[in-house]
């Protein structure tokens, strides 16, 4: 297990619930530094929630999240904002600020956190935009971009401060094959070039398998399997196989829990099973 010689995030016994439903229950996850780690699982299992917990936007019911020794849930508001300078996050929707140009969006973290002179900010922003191939779009507004371009701009913004940790929330969903390929390439190359740690939350198996160094699979509020892509493909647990091969029915049933089909159909309007 040479991956875990150097870990950047150590999640221990993490529990988080919404109402009566556990989103995660006593989860342990360790993220190796400088690698691409993927957190996978069916929709609605709280993968995005997990990222928000790491980012400190939500507070867990119990457990700890150690980022280089800082326990995120126990930081004060201002300490949290300082720690977040070390993180970049790519949101599912991109989360570009709609009232600023692409250039200003990418420059925003620099303006807030550094006192760099204008021309230096300009150079850094143009370099980052060049890295995602959108230097020519610097003066456009976010509303003028396509979905894939928007996500690349958001990626440029997420890495503009050269963070130690970049989190990707469903980076591949809703992208056409070309944009998807571009993003997969970008994430991989940026990870190698800049040496940061990447966490990808996704349920796109093919793309994620191709770039992840280590994968956690989450279902039913728990980690059901973890390992390198090769290990997981050899895994013979039924639940893991269903997910990895995309089978429609299995331990995760196709049907949402409901009353007996026949009774409900035969019961008429008022006898709707009650």
């Amino acid at each position: 297990m040479d991956f875990f010689d150097d870990i950047i995030i150590d999640i221990k016994q993490l529990t988080f619930s919404r109402g009566d439903r556990y989103i995660c229950k006593n989860i342990d996850i360790r993220i190796p530094r400088g690698k691409v780690t993927a957190i996978m699982g069916p929709s609605g299992t709280g993968k995005t929630t997990l990222l928000k917990l790491i980012g400190g936007q939500l507070k867990p019911d119990s457990g700890s999240i150690l980022l280089d020794g800082d326990d995120i849930p126990r930081l004060s508001r201002s300490e949290l904002f300082d720690v977040r300078e070390k993180m970049g996050m790519l949101f599912q929707s991109g989360a570009l600020f709609t009232d600023m140009t692409v250039f200003e969006n990418v420059a925003f973290p620099l303006r807030v956190h550094t006192k760099l002179p204008q021309d230096m900010i300009r150079d850094i922003v143009l370099m980052k935009l060049q890295a995602v191939g959108l230097r020519g779009a610097a003066e456009l507004m976010p509303s003028e971009l396509s979905g894939g371009m928007g996500r690349r701009v958001a990626l440029a913004r997420a890495i503009v401060l050269d963070p130690a940790l970049v989190m990707y929330d469903e980076p591949f969903t809703g992208q056409d094959p070309i944009a998807m390929g571009v993003l997969v390439n970008l994430i991989k190359k940026l990870n190698q070039a800049l040496g940061h740690t990447s966490i990808i939350v996704s349920h796109d198996i093919k793309e994620t398998l191709s770039i992840a160094d280590y994968i956690y699979i989450i279902a039913d509020a728990d980690v059901i399997a973890h390992g390198t892509p090769e290990e997981l493909q050899q895994n013979d647990s039924e639940q893991v196989r269903q997910f990895m091969c995309g089978l429609p029915d299995g331990p995760v049933p196709f049907h949402f829990p409901a009353n007996d089909y026949e009774t409900q159909l035969m019961g008429g309007v008022d006898g709707s099973g009650n």
Partner: peptide, 9 residues
């Protein structure tokens, strides 16, 4: 959320 993650309140 994005702004919060950039470290701006």
């Amino acid at each position: 959320s994005g702004m919060e993650m950039i470290g701006v309140d």
